[in-house]
């Protein structure tokens, strides 16, 4: 094992240890905020696998999350299926269904891909209201969905375990040749194709991985909330929060979306006493815009750069 790998594993271990001890030191209200941050991190990682790496910006991620959430909710709530079965089925449906829908979109590039994915989110929003409202709950959605566990502490550990498992799996996956190829697509797709690799297959694999995570996150999320409504899922603010978490933290990294999700969730909660409604997004969005304009690589890079500068100042003085 190389030294950098050891260093990263040590950092992961420290991070996990700190997060596991967190319930001992913070209130239940704070824990509930961090649960949302954990789910947001899962969605942001899912978005980042496809869009952050390959540069194919997806505006339709709530579509995938929605498939996972609605499938699991319908199976468990309407058909009394146990959660242990409804969640894997929801993940499978998201991966297969999402891939079938998005397959034609993978032939498109740049803004055209983004537009098509945006259309999918809108399509899903309309479909769940119109098609079989007796199953989906129509515009009002569903409530009283079975939860996996109760209490802030239990839900915190569950969401954290899920998030950290996904994060470490993706970290390991992105260190393989597959991960390098995805990053290469983001830099220059023609060169990757020229080197003999099938970019379509690579993008498809990236999309399936992304859909898998989105489905998993969506299914767990709905069983945490115990309710689901189309307006809450297929909303521009929800999409915005996912994308901004990944970008503010640092796209094409694993720690970036996690850091971004935590930062933005805490910021949003901190603003709640001053601006309780949607108005919060004015400050929240402005901060996101400023950070993105001045440091597009994200906050993680900003922190690392600052640490490097401090280190060089200290070493030059000594």
């Amino acid at each position: 094992m190389t030294n950098p790998t050891k260093k990263y594993l040590l950092l992961w271990a420290i991070f996990i240890a700190v997060m596991l001890l967190l319930p001992e030191f913070v209130s239940k209200g704070t824990l509930r905020t961090i649960i949302f941050a954990n789910f947001l991190a899962i969605f942001a990682i899912s978005w980042d696998v496809l869009s952050g790496r390959t540069g194919y910006i997806s505006f339709g991620h709530p579509f995938l999350i929605g498939i996972g959430a609605y499938t699991s909710a319908i199976l468990s709530y309407r058909f009394d299926m146990p959660i242990e079965l409804s969640i894997p089925l929801a993940v499978l449906t998201t991966t297969i269904g999402g891939t079938l829908f998005f397959l034609p979109a993978l032939r498109l590039k740049g803004s055209y891909f983004a537009l098509v994915t945006l259309a999918f989110m809108e399509l899903m929003y309309q479909l769940v209201q119109v098609i079989r409202p007796d199953l989906t709950g129509g515009t009002r959605g569903m409530s009283g969905i079975e939860t996996i566990t109760r209490g802030a502490v239990n839900n915190y550990y569950l969401s954290f375990a899920l998030m950290v498992t996904i994060a470490i799996s993706m970290w390991l996956l992105m260190r393989t040749r597959f991960g390098s190829a995805l990053s290469a697509i983001g830099m220059n797709e023609e060169s990757v194709r020229g080197s003999g690799l099938s970019t379509t297959k690579l993008k498809l694999a990236a999309f399936m991985t992304s859909a898998f995570i989105a489905g998993l996150g969506g299914a767990f999320y709905v069983h945490y909330l115990g309710s689901i409504a189309p307006r809450a899922l297929f909303d521009i603010n929800f999409l915005f929060t996912i994308i901004v978490s990944a970008l503010i933290g640092g796209a094409a990294t694993i720690i970036g979306p996690m850091f971004g999700a935590l930062f933005l969730t805490i910021l949003l909660e901190a603003l709640r006493p001053i601006l309780p409604g949607v108005e919060r997004y004015l400050i929240y969005g402005s901060i996101a815009l400023i950070v993105y304009m001045f440091k597009p690589q994200g906050l993680v890079v900003l922190v690392l750069d600052t640490l490097d500068k401090l280190r060089s100042i200290i070493s030059s003085r000594s």
């Binding site: 540069g55 910006i57 505006f59 740049g110 803004s111 983004a114 521009i236 603010n237 999409l239 915005f240 994308i243 901004v244 970008l247 601006l275 409604g277 949607v278 108005e279 919060r280 997004y281 004015l282 929240y284 969005g285 402005s286 996101a288 815009l289 993105y292 304009m293 597009p296």
Partner: peptide, 30 residues
């Protein structure tokens, strides 16, 4: 303020317009 400084990076411009949309919406609600 937004498009010109990010010139050449279409993804960044698109994302920034998305953020701006949300900011304007929130401003109007306020």
């Amino acid at each position: 303020l937004i498009v010109k400084p990010l010139k050449g990076n279409h993804v960044a411009v698109e994302i920034s317009t998305l953020i701006l949309a949300v900011v304007i919406q929130a401003g109007i609600v306020l």
